[in-house]
Computed example of a mutant assay.
Amino acid sequence: MDTKQEVTLKTIAKMANVSHTTVSRALNGSNLVKPDTKKRITEIAERLGYVPNLNAKGLVTRRSFLVGIFFTDLSTGTSESFLTDVVGQARATLSKDYDLSINSTRNATSAQGLLRHNYDGIIVLSQSKLDDEFIERVKDQGFPLVVLNRNISRNDIPNFSINDFIGSKNIAEYAIRMGHTKFGIIQGPDFFESVTQRTNGFKAALEEHDLTIDDALIKRGDYRPKSGNVAMRQILTSGDIPTCVFCENDDMAVGAINACKELGFQVPEEISFIGYDDMAYAKYLVPGLTTVRKPTDVIIKLGIEELMDLLDNEPENDAVRRKIIAPEIIVRNSVSDRRV
């Protein structure tokens, strides 16, 4: 018998003093394994002459090596920047053996459709309570499932989310410390939970400083640049211009800033801007955008790590992981100093 065929993942795991799951991830090039551990495992595998049967892998494991990532709605509210960021992070973290399928919960209308795609596991980037029905259906079908971005009420599903209330409250506090007292807000889609949290957090900071915001200076966008441009034009023609505008994502801030420049307003001297998300381009805007860094990379890494654990190990009822992560304030040059 060829000795190479006698070497298994468990053989390597025992010699490396790690789990067979870690060995599998290391040999598949996963970023979830520390470089030193990956190197040790690879060296052991090479020394033992380990040869995986790649053609038979799908049959042996009964896996399709397909992970479904579902957004709330791809046509409304999910900006191209956020979509690109999530997919990029997911591909960088996920084992190279896996492919991604991108869809929205609104398009996934039946359990039969989910079964037909034969997903190994599903990640939901949830923005709305409207996703709850889809989440329930996926759970009932027995798919390994992780919900990201929105804090859900149930505790039987791994859930990693972001504290948008605190993020927007902290960025409002910063603008107030810089001497601003008259604000405008460009909101995102009204059915998104992130929008509710960002608006409430911002207003909470104003209330703590006995500040109010005129309803005429609160406009609705859809998280895309064009909507930010349109909303800002409405604010500029209202006759009551704020000194600082909070755009509830960076993409709308881009459109809003361009509207100011097109109409002859100086940014940030006349009108300051705050964004949210800290997309890759934010630091290259002129002026650089002061914003809230949404830790998308962290929740994607946690989500994929958890999904892989669900696939590789028997889940324990009392081991469901949940975490709410606070965002970080990123100060650049788009908020002027109005302190006397």
Rank of each mutant, 00 (worst) to 15 (best):
D2T: 12
A13R: 00
M15F: 02
V18A: 07
S19P: 03
H20P: 13
N31I: 01
L32K: 11
D36Y: 02
K38G: 11
I44N: 07
P52A: 01
L54T: 15
L54G: 01
L54P: 07
A56F: 14
K57S: 15
T61N: 14
R63V: 09
L66V: 10
V67D: 06
V67Q: 02
V67N: 09
I69Y: 01
I69E: 03
I69D: 06
F70H: 14
F71G: 13
F71M: 11
T72V: 08
L74S: 03
T76E: 15
G77W: 14
T78H: 01
L83T: 10
V86E: 03
V86Y: 02
V87T: 11
V87N: 07
R91N: 15
A92N: 15
K96N: 11
K96F: 09
D97Y: 13
S101R: 06
I102M: 04
A108N: 11
L115S: 14
N118P: 08
N118Q: 12
Y119T: 01
D120T: 05
G121Q: 02
I122K: 05
I123P: 01
V124P: 08
V124I: 09
S126E: 00
S128I: 03
L130C: 02
D131I: 07
E133Q: 08
R137E: 12
V138M: 06
D140Q: 12
P144G: 04
V146L: 04
V146E: 11
S153L: 14
N155S: 13
D156I: 08
P158C: 07
F160W: 10
S168R: 00
K169L: 09
R177N: 15
G184Y: 10
I185V: 14
Q187I: 09
G188H: 10
P189V: 11
P189L: 12
D190Q: 13
F191S: 06
F192H: 15
F192P: 13
V195K: 03
V195D: 14
T196W: 00
Q197N: 12
N200Y: 03
A204H: 08
A205E: 15
E207K: 00
T212Y: 05
D214K: 15
A216P: 08
K219T: 05
Y223M: 07
K226M: 15
V230K: 09
V230D: 12
V230A: 13
S238G: 10
P242D: 07
P242R: 06
T243D: 13
T243A: 01
C244I: 06
V245E: 03
C247H: 00
A253V: 07
V254W: 06
G255W: 03
N258E: 09
E262W: 06
E262G: 07
F265M: 04
F265D: 11
F265V: 07
G275E: 07
D277S: 04
M279E: 02
A280Q: 10
Y284P: 02
V286Y: 15
P287G: 03
P287K: 13
L289W: 04
T290K: 10
R293D: 09
K294C: 12
P295V: 04
T296F: 08
I300V: 10
K301Q: 08
L302Q: 14
I304A: 08
E305Y: 01
E305W: 05
E316Q: 11
D318M: 10
R321L: 15
I324K: 12
I329W: 07
R332G: 00
V335F: 12
S336G: 11
S336C: 15
D337P: 00
R339S: 03
R339P: 00
R339N: 09
R339E: 08
